[in-house]
Simulated scan of single mutants.
Amino acid sequence: MRNIRAKTLLLAGALALLAFPLCKNFIDHKAPGFHVDVREDDSQIRQPTKNNSYVYSWPRCQQNVSAANMTDFSSLPVTIKDFLYYRHCRHFPMLLDLPDKCGGADKSAEVFLLLVIKSSPHNYDRREVLRKTWAEERLHNGVWIRRIFLSGTTDSGFEKKRLNKLLELEQREYSDILQWDFSDTFYNLTLKQILFLEWMERNCPNVRFLLNGDDDVFANTDNMVEYLQGLKDNDGSKHLFTGHLIQYVGPIRSSGSKYFVPVQVQKSDSYPPYCGGGGFLLSGYTALVIYNKSQSIDLLPIDDVYMGMCLAKAGLGPTSHIGVKTAGLYIPSKRLDEYDPCFYKDILLVHRFLSARMYFMWHRIHDPNLKCSL
């Protein structure tokens, strides 16, 4: 009996030694579009540190070399090639986590509005201004507003380390950053979105509503709370997805465009209805539906369109809200000041604001002495 057991252990050890080089090659393979910093023990789930860093770790995702067999693949821009090589990759090491942001999964219904803000590591000044203005965590109209910034990594070498350290320092002070070790680029915005939804399902599944937006939007979050509280028969447990509605459009096939999507990425010449990605409101229910449907839909580099695709697969649709202006605010005359606070006090969101103007506008619309003509 002992001889059998000894032989079994010896065989198991031999198999482990044979398997080790294969694992090692898998981990050492570099994915150029994602720059994942994987350590030798990356197959393990780690415990949170004091900075909530390095909690979840995944094996490196391998390049899908068969993508190069697509018709006219060699003629595509490098960014598109890179996207196609790693389109299937959906798990990356988490560098900064906030597992208790919503008070735990069971208490997450106490968060009425979760502000989910996409932000590159470089954008420190934008994050600082948002923390002091519309993204301030607070109780408004009797309900809680909470804030999270979503980030990947940028640059390489010493600069990458410096930027990661910057986010770590912000995390220590504010506890408001989720960071994964993938390259924070325009074509990876959809990946960032899906990683957040996966995190939400695990940590904040019962959040009532979410604002999903960029860090250069001006959002009147007070107005948002009041709008959401005024919804009939919807406490976040029913479908809601509203913003600047875009429909009857399709992929841009011009390779010189920022939004270029070739047929190798999206064959169809039409997109489903969607809301401009600068900022939109959705219910917690809809966010989880989108995540569920995303599991069976290939990633598309245009993140707002991808949200529309997930909604369409669920048999749901986005709606238009007149107060969301992701294409900018219309000013009726050039003689008028386009930053007159009276234009902004009743809206929900406007895209593309510089940090200084963001700070100015937030305080002006809350000035008790502000007088606006009807």
Rank of each mutant, 00 (worst) to 15 (best):
M1R: 13
N3L: 15
N3Q: 15
A16W: 02
F20Q: 09
L22M: 10
C23H: 13
N25A: 14
H35T: 09
R39P: 00
Q47I: 04
P48H: 01
K50F: 10
N52K: 02
V55K: 12
M70F: 14
M70S: 14
L76H: 03
K81E: 05
F83M: 05
Y86S: 10
R87D: 04
R87L: 00
R87P: 01
R87K: 13
F92R: 08
D97C: 03
D97G: 06
P99A: 06
V111Q: 03
V116E: 04
V116I: 11
K118M: 14
P121D: 08
E136M: 11
E137M: 13
R138D: 08
H140P: 00
W144F: 07
R147A: 05
F149R: 07
S151A: 12
S151R: 09
T154D: 11
D155K: 14
K160G: 04
L169Q: 13
Q171F: 06
D181C: 02
D184I: 09
L191V: 03
K192M: 14
L195Y: 06
N203T: 13
F209T: 07
L211V: 13
G213D: 06
D214R: 03
A219K: 00
D222G: 00
E226G: 01
S237R: 08
T242Q: 10
I246M: 11
I246Q: 12
P251S: 10
P262Y: 01
K267R: 07
S268T: 09
S270N: 06
P273I: 00
F280M: 05
I290S: 02
N292Q: 15
I297N: 06
D298W: 07
K313A: 10
K313S: 12
A314H: 01
L316G: 01
T319D: 12
I322G: 11
K325F: 07
Y330D: 14
L336M: 12
P341M: 08
Y344H: 10
R357G: 00
M358S: 11
H366I: 02
H366W: 05
D367N: 13
P368A: 04
P368G: 02
C372R: 07
C372S: 11
S373I: 06
S373L: 06
L374I: 10
